[in-house]
């Protein structure tokens, strides 16, 4: 999932302090799971903003809250079609995709981000999310025991660990597992160390971010 972290409320207040009608827009998907931008967080942020305005003596401020199933799909964003332009600002607490899609759809309303979008990751435990994928567009997990050297090796190495790997840890942080140590251990466990012998060609990074914004176009499902 896309992992996001809450922005400090002070930063959000700075965005909307001069607005009088604000919609806090949550998203029911990834940001709900990582407890940054779901219905519960939308309620908390909206309540905090209402109390902020009241405490500042701004009596005509209105802060509403709404949570959509997703903010990255037209059909769900259409649900606020009739109300979006009633607001001075929308604070979207979806990921950066949701913020941008909302802004693209509702040109006349300012849309502010309420979270910092961080990475594609997994929930290791409650309150701990870690990166697993950089969406490089050319998945090689079949050859690396299901462990990604692009996202988990600091140097994105493709043919074994660097000299900084020590006791299974990475040189940039002694608490960080060396991705290549993990890969070797995993390949051993599944009896596929032969894959470690395979030399990777230079990776084609044209499917990564280097070529600018990417798109996936599927004619087999397009109507």
């Amino acid at each position: 999932m896309i992992v996001a972290d809450k922005k400090p409320v002070e930063e959000i207040i700075e965005y909307v302090k001069d607005c009088r009608k604000v919609l806090v827009l949550g998203c029911n998907e990834c940001v709900t799971v990582c407890e940054a931008g779901g219905k519960k967080e939308a309620g908390m942020l909206a309540s905090a903003l209402r109390m902020y305005y009241a405490n500042q003596g701004i009596e005509d401020a209105q802060v509403d809250e709404r949570t959509l199933e997703r903010q990255c799909d037209h059909e769900y964003l259409e649900e606020i079609r009739d109300i979006a332009d009633q607001y001075d600002a929308i604070v979207s607490i979806a990921c950066g995709v949701g913020v941008q899609f909302t802004a693209e759809k509702y040109h006349n309303t300012t849309v502010y981000p309420g979270v910092n979008t961080c990475f594609l990751g997994a929930t290791e435990q409650r309150g701990l999310w870690t990166e697993r994928c950089q969406a490089c567009g050319q998945c090689i997990l079949a050859y690396t025991g299901g462990i990604c050297p692009v996202s988990r090796c600091a140097k994105r190495l493709f043919n074994g660990p660097c000299g900084g790997s020590s006791d299974g840890k990475c040189e940039i942080n002694k608490e960080l597992d060396c991705a290549w140590q993990l890969i070797i251990d995993r390949l051993k466990a599944i009896d596929r160390l032969d894959l470690y012998e395979k030399l990777f060609d230079i990776k084609d990074w044209s499917t990564d971010r280097a070529g600018g914004p990417r798109k996936v176009q599927r004619e087999d499902v397009q109507i």
Partner: peptide, 12 residues
């Protein structure tokens, strides 16, 4: 604790 931090942030 979250609520306490939030309240402090908004001046309550």
């Amino acid at each position: 604790e979250q609520v306490q931090r939030l309240l402090n942030s908004i001046g309550l």
